[in-house]
Simulated scan of single mutants.
Amino acid sequence: MRKTKLLRITTVPMSLNILLTNQMRFMEKKGFEVLAVSSKGPEIDKIVKREGVRYFTVPFSRKISPITDFYCLLKLIFLILKKKPDMVHTHTPKAGLIGMLASKICGVKYRFHTVAGLPFMTSKGLKRKLLILIEKLTYWSSNYVLPNSESMRGVILEYKLVDTNKIKIIGFGSSNGIDLDEFNPQALKSKITNKILNKINHSKDKKYLLFVGRVVKDKGVTELVDAFINLEKRFENYTLLIVGPIENIRKEEGIPLHILDEIENNPRIMALGWSDDVKYYLDIADFLIHPSYREGFPNVLLQAGAMGCPIICSDIPGNIDMVEHKITGLLFKSEDTRDLQNKLEFAFHNRDKMIIYANNFLDIVKKKFNRETVQQELYNFYIQKLNE
């Protein structure tokens, strides 16, 4: 019997590698033949080895680039016509637009797009209108739109991007859940822990704030660094750890020069670059700070929850689906340095309460967001649609 052929598409391979870890392998084990598509990148060999899938590259660009985008559309159309997938499932905005359009043009019967963030929410003027139009075109080209959180679903409906009957949330949300065997303090290797402790010159007399993500404007780095600077004289035992690449590829994503200067030169701020060992930093940190302006259903919050690391995050869609203020963490008003500063002060003075919040969130993560459960829910959705 011929296997159902599933084509998974993301803009860059990092998304398949990190956001959808082991999901394609899960579907392969369930009887699907899975093909993966993204732009080129160093993660591809690792993905192919881990997931056991065939991989194809299309030169997607995250920037708005009509000529490149049209070329990618044509290349993807030819790929779809050649490989004849039964089902196309896209993830990330540019892959969603081009992947859904190409699969609709080619007559693919089952077309699904996961929404894990809405770029227009942090844009203005003509660019905002263009990005809204792109979302509408992506959703029009799909059979089902799969927002990965209830609040994201609410935003989609608020802006009338698609009819309600085309929206489906898989399980309780999340694109891929969390591997509770991996993100488990008991599973950490002491050799790696000691290596990181040495790297940050760890001291038991210090407390550590942790930021994980791309160092760009939309991740709220400016507000975080400003709040930290405002507090550092009164809380001299705190250090800010920044785990993620510093990116200034696009002008609108850049952060102010004075913030970059603080990151590079402030002795109590450590820019550690990209790391595959986030779980170790979460185990070391006293608090995770997640000040992003827009999200879908951020994995780092699930990771922090599984590791028992207390959370302080912005009150945006995605975050608010997981963190309930003073129940499972602290929420502050997005893009508000003063409010973030106030919440940091609360956390510094109420460490016992923060641990209670973290334990509450750990219980929720275990009950609702175990990776295998989330993947099974997605598989059930695929099978339901195939049988209709």
Rank of each mutant, 00 (worst) to 15 (best):
K3H: 07
P13Q: 02
L81R: 15
Q376Y: 09
L260G: 05
M14R: 14
S38V: 09
K83F: 04
K279M: 06
P185M: 00
I64D: 07
L73R: 03
F60T: 05
E33H: 12
K46E: 15
L137A: 14
N350C: 06
S175I: 08
V48R: 12
L7H: 03
K5Q: 08
L16W: 03
A306T: 04
V53G: 09
I269A: 09
S149M: 00
L331M: 06
V215T: 11
L161R: 02
K84T: 14
R294K: 13
L118S: 01
T92S: 13
S142V: 03
H325S: 13
F112N: 10
D181Q: 07
N359P: 10
T337Y: 03
M1H: 11
E335R: 10
P256H: 01
F56I: 04
I229E: 15
K160W: 04
E295R: 00
N22Q: 08
D315T: 04
E51F: 09
L272P: 13
A102C: 08
P66Q: 01
P256E: 07
P256I: 04
F70A: 14
R214C: 09
G107T: 00
V374A: 02
R128N: 08
Y238W: 14
Y139P: 01
N266Y: 05
D218W: 07
F346P: 10
N22E: 13
S39W: 06
H202E: 09
M270I: 11
R111S: 11
R2W: 11
A304W: 01
T239D: 13
H91G: 02
I178G: 08
L19M: 09
L241V: 07
L130C: 10
E28C: 11
K367P: 12
K160I: 03
Q375T: 01
D277A: 08
P147A: 00
L331D: 10
F381A: 03
D261F: 04
N143T: 03
F183S: 06
K219S: 11
Q375M: 15
A306M: 03
F332P: 13
K84L: 11
K49V: 05
F346K: 00
H258C: 04
R268E: 08
S334I: 09
M121I: 08
T10K: 07
D336H: 10
H91R: 00
G273N: 14
T373P: 00
L330N: 06
T92A: 08
V88W: 09
G107C: 05
M152N: 14
I364A: 15
L97Q: 06
G329F: 00
N265G: 08
M121P: 03
K343A: 12
K75F: 00
E232N: 14
F112D: 06
Q384F: 06
L241Q: 10
I383F: 03
M27W: 04
H89R: 01
H91Y: 12
K29T: 14
L340W: 05
Q375V: 01
L240H: 11
L331I: 09
Q303V: 02
E28Q: 14
R50Y: 10
N230F: 03
F348K: 01
I44P: 14
G125F: 04
V215I: 15
G244H: 02
L210W: 01
G154L: 02
G99V: 05
E182P: 00
G273I: 10
G171A: 11
L6D: 08
K343C: 15
N370K: 09
